[in-house]
Amino acid sequence: MSLRDVGWSQQHPTKTLTDPDDGPIEVDVEMVPLIEAVWAAGHTTIMSCQDIGESILTGGTVIPEHLWERNGAYYLGMAWLKVPADQGPRLMTTWEPLARQRRGEWLAQVPIQGGRLCGYASIHLPREQITQATDLLT
């Protein structure tokens, strides 16, 4: 599934990686080491972004235009990783030391849609901690 299939457009420079499950995909360059480490640790990724706030502000997401400014400002400087819901807690346990350093800046959630938990977890982390998050997985 491409970004365009879900209403997203690419906003950051990318590198092509070969997803173990889905073949070639485009990954934001700053996220490449983290995505590779997540895969090497046996996890799966669904989507990612090196700065979701920038993507929102430039119209690269499915967020309605009238919410771009507010949501973009809120998420500016935050990287984003979308993983299967059952993998979110394990990753967050690994990253707990980083989350403690930056309380309130790390966010992990499983959305509710149609009265049920979705099959994915969204993890937001400070962009500045992408390298540290990678190091904890390797």
Score class of each variant (00 low, 15 high):
110 V>A: 08
27 V>H: 00
100 R>M: 07
116 R>H: 04
98 L>E: 07
63 I>R: 11
31 M>G: 05
48 S>K: 11
94 T>Q: 12
103 R>K: 12
69 E>V: 07
27 V>E: 00
54 E>L: 13
58 T>G: 08
101 Q>S: 06
91 L>H: 12
27 V>P: 00
76 L>A: 15
41 A>T: 10
74 Y>T: 04
68 W>R: 11
119 G>L: 11
35 I>F: 02
96 E>C: 03
81 L>T: 02
115 G>L: 12
78 M>L: 15
109 Q>E: 14
108 A>Y: 06
112 I>R: 05
42 G>W: 02
115 G>R: 07
96 E>V: 08
47 M>I: 09
116 R>F: 05
95 W>Y: 07
95 W>F: 02
100 R>T: 09
99 A>Y: 06
32 V>N: 05
29 V>S: 09
37 A>M: 15
93 T>P: 01
33 P>F: 01
48 S>G: 07
88 G>T: 11
62 V>P: 00
76 L>R: 03
52 I>R: 08
50 Q>C: 04
32 V>C: 05
33 P>C: 13
47 M>N: 10
99 A>S: 12
60 G>P: 04
60 G>N: 12
38 V>R: 06
69 E>K: 12
33 P>N: 06
41 A>E: 13
47 M>L: 14
57 L>A: 12
81 L>S: 01
35 I>M: 06
50 Q>E: 15
111 P>L: 12
83 V>Y: 05
120 Y>I: 13
28 D>G: 02
51 D>L: 05
39 W>P: 01
29 V>E: 15
58 T>L: 13
54 E>H: 10
76 L>S: 07
33 P>G: 05
80 W>T: 13
66 H>W: 10
92 M>A: 09
112 I>W: 02
98 L>K: 00
54 E>N: 03
117 L>E: 13
89 P>W: 11
35 I>L: 09
33 P>E: 05
86 D>T: 14
101 Q>Y: 04
72 G>D: 08
83 V>I: 09
60 G>T: 09
82 K>E: 15
110 V>K: 01
53 G>W: 04
105 E>M: 14
47 M>E: 15
108 A>E: 15
103 R>G: 05
41 A>G: 04
56 I>D: 06
110 V>Y: 09
121 A>Q: 08
36 E>G: 05
89 P>V: 07
37 A>W: 08
85 A>T: 00
81 L>W: 10
46 I>R: 07
93 T>W: 07
109 Q>R: 11
48 S>Y: 04
29 V>I: 10
63 I>L: 05
61 T>A: 06
68 W>Y: 11
116 R>D: 10
101 Q>T: 14
106 W>V: 03
51 D>Y: 02
93 T>K: 15
98 L>Q: 08
95 W>R: 02
49 C>M: 10
71 N>M: 14
92 M>F: 02
91 L>C: 08
63 I>K: 02
68 W>P: 01
28 D>T: 02
59 G>E: 14
111 P>E: 12
116 R>E: 15
30 E>A: 15
51 D>F: 04
34 L>K: 03
27 V>W: 00
116 R>K: 11
